[in-house]
Amino acid sequence: MELEEFQRWVRQFYRQRGWSEYGPFIRVGFLMEETGEVARAVRALEIGRDRPDETDRPLPELEQELVEELGDVLGNVILLANLYDVSLEEIASAHQAKLMKRYSEGEGTAVPHKEV
């Protein structure tokens, strides 16, 4: 699915349920909640949750949970973008341009992920 098509779908889906009526401050709160759920899903994948009700969950189930939570984050980002009439294409292009400009001189190279 293309970004623009997905952005339109999210707008319509959330409007039909009355979920797009929330203002930006409430929407940011939802985004933070969903971001926390992404963190919880990553923790479950990487080090486990050490909870008796969450033991022995198969890897595909944990991976699916992460995908779904990332989708919730993306949905909330889209809703914020829609509140300000900004397309995902514009966001992606601006982000790419910012990073290309920032790192065009070869400074600030990324630090590789280190295993703990």
Rank of each mutant, 00 (worst) to 15 (best):
A44C: 05
E68Y: 06
G108V: 08
Q16S: 13
A97S: 13
I91V: 15
P58F: 01
E21F: 03
R40S: 01
E105S: 14
E107N: 14
A81G: 04
E5A: 06
T55H: 15
R11V: 04
Q64W: 01
R17G: 00
L59M: 06
E4F: 08
E46N: 00
E21K: 12
E105P: 07
G23I: 02
V86D: 02
E107S: 13
M32K: 14
Q96N: 15
E2M: 07
P52E: 10
E37D: 13
V10N: 05
E54C: 09
P24T: 04
E21V: 04
R51S: 08
D85R: 15
K114F: 08
E61C: 05
E4L: 12
V116G: 07
G36H: 01
R43D: 01
I91C: 15
E21G: 11
E33S: 12
P24Q: 11
V111I: 12
L83E: 05
R49W: 13
M100E: 13
A44Q: 14
L3F: 06
L66R: 00
E37P: 06
E69Y: 00
Q12V: 10
V10Q: 04
D50Y: 08
M32V: 13
I47G: 06
L83N: 05
L74P: 02
I78C: 09
L83D: 11
G23E: 13
G48R: 05
G106V: 09
G75N: 07
E33A: 10
E105F: 09
L99Q: 10
L59F: 00
R27L: 07
Q96R: 15
L80M: 09
E69D: 02
I47C: 09
E34T: 05
T55K: 12
E115S: 00
E90I: 11
L79H: 01
L31T: 01
D56Y: 10
V42L: 12
